[in-house]
Design a binder for these strands. Structure first.
Lengths: 238, 238
DNA sequence: GTCAATTTGTTCGTATGTATT
DNA sequence: AAATACATACGAACAAATTGA
């Protein structure tokens, strides 16, 4: 007996979907058994089953015969973001093996936010260094680093020798640097990004714009990092 | 003359795409004119046009006759995240009108991260308050707030009176609170979320898990906020 | 307000590589 | 294997829109 215009099981599915989205049923936990849900909503068990099947289709839950229905755990890597976090340390701390792969480098004129954040004039030359950071050979972060060329000429070659941004920077007398601002947004991946991050094109990427400064507070790097949203959850502690 | 297996204009499109994704051509700036690009890549103008048209199709650039081709500016609202940021203050500071709409409330057992972060036993009751926060009537944040029920019984009704979480909390003798941790991830919106946030289902949402503590450091709220990725860019200052 | 310069849009024509019949 | 159709790429010329002197 469909009272309103919408099919009953779809209404139930949306209700459950909302509860999962709001975390009311936390990730990793089991849904109440079907008879219980049926009683709670005052519908037949078949109707609940149809609704839950829809959730399973969209990958929100996984149904296991005899065990129950479980809200899909995200299984994301908690990636701490702080003034002094270094990729290498983060990954090592999680007992995984960090590696940074060289993608490309170029000399480009500063423009837009990049120029502003690096305190350069539009048109001043920058060194662009694009790298892919992996944990246990799993791509985590596709990063574009911009350095003022006047100060860091040749840093791309040094990076290819030592395989680490931090190490390469020590050759330029930068022994410590801190992250000043971090801007976070999200969008769908471009095809090249999805490929390098080994990510389905249907899942979004987290985009981080960061500014690193040296001990004197002078900006030394502007970075645009793209993180696979499936792989990481950024953690800010304050 | 297709040398390799891939079509020429697609290779050019991907090259331009990468440059835009890496911020090498910053958002809001103009692409070089077609003849210039054609010369740079050593191809005919038609070929460049086909590549740029592909970028326009995917919404990466907008082409304007007589003016040029422009990298789509994001036009996102910079949303500062700090230990003391309040939605109302942020939006007011941007000269927009903040409003919080009541969506629903419920009593739910604590579970998973929520229980851990609130330092509750699994099964202890929480008050769930789901709200939609708008700036100039534009939906920004769909938030699920969890409060320990023992301490905040009736807060949902107070919220519906005063229209603000912060104000409602003062009735419970909470005159100051700070954000302890913020976890950021991203995923595609559920149908209900897309509707409330007035967002296309093809664009992702930023998901923020937050923990707020009172002056004594006791957790008072666990929140799951879903932000329209088109509308906001989160800004962390350190 | 007009004109010239710049930039994208459109339409010819020609040649060639790829796939189908 | 040959004929046909289709997509790709290049070249040239002109039209339409925008901007700034």
């Amino acid at each position: 007996l469909r009272q309103s215009g919408v099919v009953l099981w779809k209404k139930l599915a949306e209700k459950l979907e909302n509860e999962i989205g709001a975390g009311e049923i936390a990730a990793g936990t089991r849904l109440p058994p079907e008879p219980e849900l049926a009683a709670r909503f005052g519908v037949n068990r078949h109707t609940i089953r149809r609704a839950v099947a829809a959730l399973a289709d969209m990958g929100l839950v996984s149904i296991e015969q005899g065990r129950g229905t479980f809200v899909r755990g995200t299984g994301m890597l908690g990636y701490p973001i702080g003034p002094r976090t270094r990729f290498t340390d983060v990954i090592s701390g999680l007992n995984q093996f960090p590696r940074a792969r060289f993608i490309r480098s170029a000399r480009v004129p500063a423009m837009g936010k990049m120029a502003t954040d690096l305190k350069l004039q539009e048109g001043d030359l920058c060194l662009l260094l694009e790298t892919l950071h992996l944990a246990d050979e799993r791509p985590i972060n596709l990063a574009a680093h911009y350095f003022p060329l006047a100060r860091f000429e040749g840093l791309d070659r040094v990076f290819q020798e030592v395989g680490s941004i931090t190490k390469a920077l020590t050759r330029f007398e930068i022994h410590d640097y801190t992250r000043r601002t971090t801007r976070v947004s999200s969008r769908m991946p471009l095809s090249g990004e999805a490929e390098l991050l080994q990510q389905p094109i249907g899942k979004p990427v987290l985009v981080l714009e960061t500014v690193n400064v040296d001990e004197t507070g002078t900006p030394i790097e502007f970075g645009i990092g793209r993180f696979a949203s499936e792989a990481v959850q950024l953690v800010f502690e304050t």
